[in-house]
Design a protein around this nucleic acid. Structure first.
Lengths: 354, 354
DNA sequence: CTGAAAGCGCTAACAA
DNA sequence: TTGTTAGCGCTTTCAG
């Protein structure tokens, strides 16, 4: 077996003395349908094996206008949240015989747009994108061309498109209620990338909960600008250097929490004795940290699985799905990074008591 | 702008009243070379923009026999080690204008072989694979067909192929020497997937170090069979239930360490007071665990970067690289999960002292 | 400076 | 039951 030059339908056809379409029919399982004789079919299969034939999906894709390929655009595959979603996406896609072309946008709109253009050129049958979130133009273009598109994790207000992610507002609200029940009133919020729906919704939940308790919102406690670890580190450092230190920190992403932890450790502060911490987005290791971290867990696998199903549905029968969002409920996992504290003195009283 | 049906060279050609090849030449930057008139070139570019032209890479790939696509096959993209390598691979590939088709083999040889076949059909220009490790047949086939291939993280003895990974034997040796310097003699080794080179080399380093200290190897202390968390958990449970408990555990992967930690926590055992732990493969969060874990860190990003460079070199000029392996030195990061212990009593003496 | 022809490998339509 | 023709969109000859 194994010629150096790849076998083609034509080379098989010549060997068996039939025509290329016949070979095509047999090898794509249509022998029955075309009532091709058992002998011919067998001979073709044998020849294909002997020559080490591999179908050329470039050619069939060109001809059929279908590549059985999906584009996946995410902001950072090394973020464990995205890694777990990506894994489920790849697995689910594979179960439907679709391949994944992976593009990392590095939280950069320009790169995201480039990825979108590239994937269009590669004629993917559909795209899954977690948008950086600042710009929807290139995504609207995809829709305009009737290329199936599903947004994951982050949605965009100004584009009508199916979406799968978490109910971030509710998750953040629950986290905050937990903090407040434990007596916290001065709670810092270390944000991720602004303008992303996840961030906006989480900050929204943060504010909702504060309002629900009649606590005025202190804008200066809402800090940060990226889902990366550095951001968590720097903002926590800054927070700690204030004269009035918050009693709790709400980290809006797992890497932010990690950065916060690093800053806290450097300052020799202990969680939750010195300061409480709660994080959005659970991680397996959170239970084993010096202080197990209380978090809002998302349904990572479900997000990936549903997104692919939605996308493939849309590919198979365009227009059946309304451009609605699916918001999976996150859930609060209480561990031990939140301390119960005495309700803080009213500022006026505190001022007097000095 | 934006017709529903995608623009092609032909449609542009018709619009500008030139031929398709001329359009092709202009849009692929060969206007100078073919000395195409400024006006024609400008008109073509304008028309392309107006029609929203995107090149069809399927067609050019078919014609050119080059797709500018690389296949990446890894055992588990959600394992943070692979996720970080994958990220670097995608970034580096992108910097050379290559796309990545991602396949997760789920540590399964059959799926790996399927991925390899699929990628061949998709006509990738080269492949990066981290082999499950039990079987090399499908990989040898790739080489036979002169499809550039680079192995990452795990190599295979019976295939001659460029490789980039860590010097696992040396890493494991250093971890063990550290343990032994601290007085440990009864050290359990929780393995990953057997027959993978990483596992074999790490176990090799484990044994080397024991021999170097004249400690006989107790086969019953070498347990486990997967790089997953469950394996770490179960094997640690089992280890703890022994009458003679080892004084230290060497986890051969980051998820194994996580599983071990879970088992230890369940048994209310503290690291390192009750038992010491050392892990292969560092993770950012290791510093913040209840007990910061001492580890052997690999150069994840370097592995990804070098692998892609090697592969692209091989694609551009086949045969320039010898099928040698690049083994990057890992390094020991001492944190606090290893306790100094008194040298254990000699078994006979211990027996007498009861 | 530009165009006509051909072909990459595949499959759908039509014919026999 | 099988073959012929044609064309997906691109680029490379070769011709002018």
């Amino acid at each position: 077996m194994g010629k150096h030059v790849n076998a083609t339908l034509k080379s098989i056809a010549e060997k068996v003395h039939v025509s290329a379409p016949t070979v095509s029919r047999v090898l794509s399982g249509k022998a029955r349908e075309f009532r091709i004789s058992k002998e011919t079919a067998a001979a073709i299969k044998a020849a294909a094996r002997e020559l080490g034939y591999t179908p050329n999906y470039l050619a069939s894709g060109l001809r059929l206008r279908k590549t059985h390929t999906l584009g996946l655009v995410i902001p950072d595959i090394s973020n464990p949240f995205f890694a777990s979603v990506a894994r489920e996406i790849e697995k689910t896609a594979r179960s439907y015989s679709y391949s994944i072309i992976l593009c990392d946008s590095e939280e950069n709109t320009k790169q995201e747009a480039e990825a979108a253009a590239l994937l269009q050129g590669r004629k993917v049958d559909g795209m899954l994108v977690c948008p950086v979130g600042q710009e929807a133009h290139h995504l609207r273009q995809i829709r305009d061309r009737h290329l199936p598109l599903v947004l994951i994790d982050r949605f965009l207000p100004d584009i009508s498109c199916p979406f799968v992610g978490s109910d971030n507002r509710r998750g953040a609200f629950e986290a905050m209620m937990h903090l407040q029940e434990k007596g916290h009133r001065s709670i810092a919020c270390v944000q991720g990338l602004r303008n992303t729906s996840t961030n906006r919704e989480r900050v929204g939940g943060y504010c909702d909960a504060l309002k629900a308790q009649g606590v005025p919102i202190d804008e200066s406690l809402i800090v940060g600008s990226s889902f990366g670890e550095e951001n968590g580190y720097i903002e926590t450092k800054l927070l700690l250097s204030r004269t009035e230190r918050p009693t709790a920190i709400f980290a809006l992403g797992n890497l932010i929490a990690l950065g916060a932890l690093r800053a806290l450790a450097e300052s020799n502060l202990h969680v939750p004795e010195d300061i409480s911490l709660i994080s959005f987005d659970d991680q397996r290791y959170f239970s084993f940290l010096a202080t197990p971290v209380t978090t809002i867990a998302q349904q990572n696998e479900e997000i990936g699985r549903i997104a692919v199903k939605l996308l493939i549905d849309e590919i198979r029968s365009p227009g059946v799905h309304t451009a609605e969002g699916i918001f999976l409920p996150p859930r609060l996992i209480i561990r031990s990074s939140v301390a119960r504290i005495d309700p803080p003195l009213h500022p006026v009283i505190r001022a007097l008591s000095v």
